[in-house]
């Protein structure tokens, strides 16, 4: 299993039946494929829909029906569509139970940076900042280290923040942390790794949970 799949499969364990969930692009969206049987979540697309499904077949596309990535979608039975102001009423108003967003960096104070690398990559924040502030539970998903092996789970984010003190859980290819006012708590370690491996790859300070587990899939 590659690291992206580890992260996606672990994200998929975050949800309770019936929750309203908004998934960011990349690994969070991939996670929808791994949500366990018996857990039915209500997916929201920020451009204005609830309970949407996958791509239509060629020839069955509706030019008026797309997701927040500009891709064609279908609506599931009981699905609804609405305008953007209403969609962000759902998001900012606390009506989304959980959001999972990719991140460039996270830190031990629950800060997250995921919208800007000054001078290099400035796509804009899109709806991410609203989700981070409005969702009841914010999960950050990211590779534990960059390609050079530097930790992306930091004492303090170096990149411009997307929101301060909002992350409740961090999922990486090496570990899962809970985030609280007391800082980070290591609750799960990826298969094949030890706590020492996590320690070596992590800049942030953290406590180890007494019942720390191996991630299971």
């Amino acid at each position: 299993m590659n690291s992206r799949e580890i992260i996606a499969r672990r994200i998929a364990q975050e949800f309770n039946d019936g929750e309203v969930v908004n998934l960011g692009f990349g690994m969070p969206t991939m996670a929808a494929n791994y949500i366990p049987n018996g857990i039915n979540v209500i997916l929201q697309t920020e451009n204005g829909g609830l309970r949407f499904g996958g791509a239509p077949k060629a020839g069955e596309q509706n030019p008026d029906l797309g997701n927040a990535g500009g891709e064609p979608i279908t609506m599931l039975p009981g699905g609804s569509a609405f305008d953007l102001a209403f969609s962000f009423c759902i998001i900012r108003g606390g009506h989304v139970d959980a959001t999972v967003l990719g991140a460039l960096e996270v830190d031990q104070n629950g800060n997250i940076a995921n919208w800007k690398i000054p001078g290099k990559f400035v796509p804009g924040m899109g709806g991410g900042m609203d989700l981070l502030v409005g969702a009841k539970k914010v999960v950050a998903a990211l590779a534990h280290t960059d390609k050079a092996g530097n930790s992306k789970v930091l004492k303090s984010c170096t990149l411009p923040l997307s929101a301060a003190g909002v992350v409740k859980r961090i999922i990486t290819d090496k570990a899962v942390f809970n985030v609280s006012s007391k800082g980070l708590e290591l609750i799960e370690i990826a298969p094949g790794l030890t706590e020492a491996d996590v320690k070596a790859a992590t800049e942030a300070d953290y406590q180890v949970a007494t019942n720390v587990k191996t991630m299971t899939f």
Binding site: E46, L84, A85, F88, I91, R92, N111, M125, G126, G127, G128, M129, D130, V133, G134, P160, L161, S162, A163, A164, G165
Partner: peptide, 27 residues
């Protein structure tokens, strides 16, 4: 931020004087 963007437009159309939002605090 996307929600702020659309709410600013809504405010213009709805005769409101401003948008007041927690989104973006600390950024």
């Amino acid at each position: 931020p996307m929600g702020t963007f659309i709410e600013r437009i809504r405010a213009a159309g709805a005769g409101l004087g401003a948008v007041v939002t927690p989104v973006g605090i600390g950024t």
